[in-house]
Amino acid sequence: MEMHDLCAIAAREPHCVLATAVKVEGHAYRKQGVSMLLTEEGILYGSISPGCLESDLQDRVVRVLDSQQLEFVEYDMRPEDDLSWGETIGCGGLIIVLIEPVCGELRSILSHMHTYFQSGSAVELTRSFYNHYSRIRYEIKLAEDAEDAERQTVLRHSLVAIHPSGSAIVASVSGENTPPRESLSEVNCWGIPQQISAQYAPKPRLIIVGAGNDVIPVARLGKSAGFRVVVADWRETLCTAERFPDVELVCGFPHEIMPVLDIQSGDYILLMSHQFPREREFLELLEGRSYAYLGLMGSRTRTARLLNDLPPLKHLHSPVGLTIGADGPEEIAISIAAELIVCKRAATAAERRDVQRGIRHATDGHRASGG
């Protein structure tokens, strides 16, 4: 689950904590900087481990919410002879998790971050620790404006970890029966810096032109894969919230929807309407625009006709989807989602080209066969 999602969820969950892996050494399920939300009612949003740590984190939620105080928690699963984790061990690394009550200034920060994400802006969040890690200051700024002082937007807030003694609880957990240790010096022993920054990108948009039945599983998997899904079609009876729940819908013909979509360089586009004239019109209107991905559903013969006399199109994937032997709408949707993930994970244009050289595409848009 992306930070984009967590910020939105935090707005509707009145009693929750934010858990973030601030240090990771060795093998771990997720990377340093990943976060999740845990509620007082026991609901988990996102994950830090494959299930090894979440139950212990959940046990700390009520205390953190009651004290309104942050906690640092150590999970050291490196010793091979340590059997205290039982059958749930799945990482084998060292993970330091910061648990923060989502209230006051942090809730405000997450709300502002969500606003930036919705506008398509990347955000940099900085935590600065003071008074032996008992106080924390949050700062957010638009990541793309870091070099532009005039346009830079910065919000600074201070959050006091409220506790009568002014101390923070530091717990080292190596097994179910290990008691917590209250020691501020332990944070320094872990090498946690006094300032931690992380950049978060907004969800990339996946624009699907077409609202047929085969689009439904693609939209669903696109959401699960971390995309902000938009379905566009000129057929109002197909383009409905009942068919596409929690998806942005745009109704109209290509020349009508193009100004509304306002396609940007980070957008992913799929043509799945199966309507040749409309898709041809859309591609003509796409000329000169920047985008990250363009996938065309259909056979190579159909695609060749569709592209006839058009200037070369950037980031073209046709036939769409990876070759996984897919058959039927659900499996084809999986092959498309897999290709979208591959392209999303390619951090640079050069990496994307390298990845594409190794991708084997489906032989047509309806039956992806291996070989």
Rank of each mutant, 00 (worst) to 15 (best):
E87D: 09
V17D: 09
A362M: 13
P311F: 01
S273L: 05
L270D: 08
E100K: 11
A146L: 10
L110C: 12
A225T: 08
V229D: 01
E71L: 07
H4Y: 15
L184K: 00
R353Q: 14
Y268R: 10
H27I: 00
W85C: 06
P245R: 02
G371N: 10
L316I: 05
L271I: 13
E144H: 11
P50H: 13
R205M: 11
A11T: 07
E74C: 04
E351A: 15
A211N: 03
A304Q: 13
L283V: 04
A122E: 11
F129A: 03
K141Y: 08
Q356I: 08
I48P: 13
R228P: 00
W190P: 01
H27M: 03
R352K: 15
E2T: 13
S49N: 10
L38P: 14
L340P: 12
P193K: 01
R243C: 00
C52K: 03
S134Y: 07
F72G: 05
I207T: 05
Y291P: 10
V24R: 00
S299G: 07
K223M: 04
L296S: 02
N177C: 06
Y138H: 13
I324G: 05
I109A: 09
L70E: 11
R30G: 00
I89Q: 13
E87H: 09
L125T: 07
A347N: 12
I96A: 02
E13L: 08
C52P: 10
Q32M: 14
I324V: 12
A219W: 04
E186M: 09
I359P: 04
Y293N: 04
S369G: 07
A338L: 13
P254F: 01
F117T: 09
Y45R: 11
L110A: 12
L286H: 01
S174I: 03
G90E: 03
E105C: 11
D59H: 13
P319F: 05
K141L: 10
P277K: 10
Y268Q: 08
Y138T: 03
T126M: 12
R181P: 02
L283F: 08
L285E: 03
S121M: 14
E287T: 10
H317F: 11
E281R: 03
S224L: 14
A168V: 14
A143T: 01
H317R: 11
S121E: 15
D233Y: 01
G371I: 06
V17G: 12
G358N: 12
I192D: 04
R151T: 03
E242I: 00
P202V: 08
V22G: 03
A11Y: 02
R60C: 07
S119R: 14
L18C: 13
E74V: 01
H274V: 02
R135L: 07
R300E: 06
A337R: 06
E40A: 15
E13Q: 15
V260Q: 09
S183F: 03
R357N: 12
I332L: 14
L206T: 09
